[in-house]
Design a binder for these strands. Structure first.
Lengths: 327, 327
DNA sequence: CTGAAAGCGCTTACAG
DNA sequence: CTGAAAGCGCTTACAG
């Protein structure tokens, strides 16, 4: 069996209270006692049981993160940063892949509450459904508005959409199409689309939007893009609101014998490490993923500590144009 | 404050014991009592505290996973599957990104032990360092030999290496170079290299291996590949032991004005969803990621349940050639 | 069919 | 400087 605090106490010839004290570096303990206890601990290979500690302290040092799927490079990278930053601050991370499904999200939320997480980072889209605040739990959202009181961290989506659209326009594209996912209309990521639509209208051009219903399914992407080519054969510029859609479009364009960027310019969004490795020629808007993670954790820890005063409700981080050769 | 079992008991006019019984569906309870209790629970919005339950049950239903980084698409996808399968079986997942650093790995292992995880999935390379078995904890390794007694699940690396090398040879390549990571010599993934070396030697060709020291760093990859081009300008075939290296090579080849596959054929390894989206033209050996995850969890749960009899020490899953246009 | 008591492995006032 | 007692929120024999 695993040794417990009583075993250590017995071996060291002290009380469990004293062992707990050296464990927590709390109160006065003579050096001699401390040494005895530490010797006993290492002899028994003792590690304190954090479950018991959490129960008493009402603090689990556990964070939950709910996102669509770590299989998507953006979220895979985000998870890496969130976890790494949390670990450095003494928190552990329970990861939940909801695939944007509300039923899963609700189950995960309940699971996290039962497990007494100290806070949750949410990167999925279901506004309102999850009554986070009622539980008065620390929550930070990434790129999603969850309620009036939950802080949101995101890249500057409007600016990103503007840079992308402006770039296509400045390169002489006349028939610029947006490829977007289906989602909540009130998500900050929709600002990418909003910027596109507003700029197009300002220029007297008609905004054309194609929506991909099953965001993570290549078939679904291909189907919509095929439709796009059929209905708008004269497309000469594409802004995809994520790099996977951009890549799908380029693949399809090649199949159709269209030259990118010769006949069609393409620009994506996200700029993950993965896309930089696999498709470095893609021109894209890069999100500052590690900064997003840093700030999200920072705000969450503030909430956990009860420092609500200096928590901005919205943080928009600057994006960067990664100039490849596709636009 | 969060309601606890006593609050529910009081509201329902029963004892905590009875509430616990309806919670766990255990022992006889009259329908009327059950209803009263359930009504009280929903009225109070009560969720049991799993920390307290874990403490008593000596079962956390927590699994730990230690891997290099979810930022790498292979591990991002693996994590997604591991987590999803675990969730379906009632387990939660603590994710640890070790970046292959031994110090981090040790810290994470201790953290997981303190948190009383029921089992651990390990996808990092540090053989022996972690005395998993001494703690007699349920452990399953993915693509790593950790000790004589820890079951390993992997793709059929030798077969994958063979398919890749054979393909290059059959396409007439004479100067075939392997690009590999640096790592433990005894990891199953090394069988990819072994297959390459053996086939080359059988054919009277000289195996040439380039090792990338900082696996996740594009700079490091670029440096080694530049060296490769300098030392072996007549390279006409490349087998990269992962798709990121393959992509890096292709990118560099383009920069050098070499045509792939015209002058150099390239084949990678992994075949993730990401690479299929971003670089579908890459010919690669696809690992059955979801099956690896399924079997790893299945074996881990068996260990947790104490069913050691039918746990194979090594499981090699079939790979599949994804024929693109680069080889 | 239901409840009082003890205990899971810790920690923290409170004494001394 | 150190220890005995109570309690964190549950569950499970044991009675009744």
């Amino acid at each position: 069996m695993k040794p417990k605090i009583d075993d250590v106490a017995k071996l060291a010839g002290v009380s469990p209270t004293t062992v707990s004290r050296v464990l927590n570096n709390r109160g006065y303990i003579s050096d001699r006692t401390k040494e005895k206890v530490q010797k006993a601990m290492s002899e028994l290979n003792y590690f304190p049981n954090d479950v018991a500690r959490s129960l008493f302290n009402k603090r689990s040092n556990l964070l939950g993160v709910i996102l669509p799927t770590t299989a998507n490079p953006f979220f895979g990278e985000l998870t890496f940063h969130l976890e790494n930053i949390s670990a450095a601050k003494g928190y552990k991370m329970l990861v939940c892949n909801s695939l944007n499904r509300i039923d899963k999200e609700e189950k995960y939320l309940e699971m996290l509450l039962r497990n007494q997480v100290d806070g949750i980072i949410v990167g999925t889209h279901n506004r309102g459904i999850l009554d986070y605040h009622k539980q008065n739990l620390a929550v930070v959202a990434i790129d999603r508005y969850l309620s009036e009181t939950i802080p949101v961290v995101s890249s500057d989506n409007y600016e990103g959409g503007k840079i992308a659209t402006d770039l296509l326009v400045s390169q002489g594209c006349k028939n610029i199409v947006l490829i977007d996912g289906i989602g909540d209309l009130e998500t900050p990521a929709r600002l990418r689309r909003k910027a596109y639509e507003e700029i197009m209208e300002e220029l007297g051009l008609r905004p054309i939007v194609y929506e991909i219903p099953e965001v993570f399914d290549r078939e679904s992407q291909a189907k919509v893009i095929a439709k796009l080519f059929k209905e708008y054969p004269d497309v000469d510029g594409v802004f995809a609101t994520n790099d996977i859609f951009a890549a799908s479009f380029i693949t399809m364009a090649k199949k159709m014998g269209r030259d990118v960027p010769g006949q069609i310019k393409v620009i994506g969004y996200d700029g993950t490490e993965s896309v930089q490795s696999f498709l470095p020629e893609l021109t894209t808007i890069q999100q500052p993923i590690s900064t997003i993670a840093e700030i999200a954790i920072e705000l969450l820890l503030k909430e956990i500590e009860g420092e609500f005063q200096d928590i901005p409700l919205e943080t928009r981080l600057p994006v960067k144009l990664l100039k490849g050769t596709t636009a």
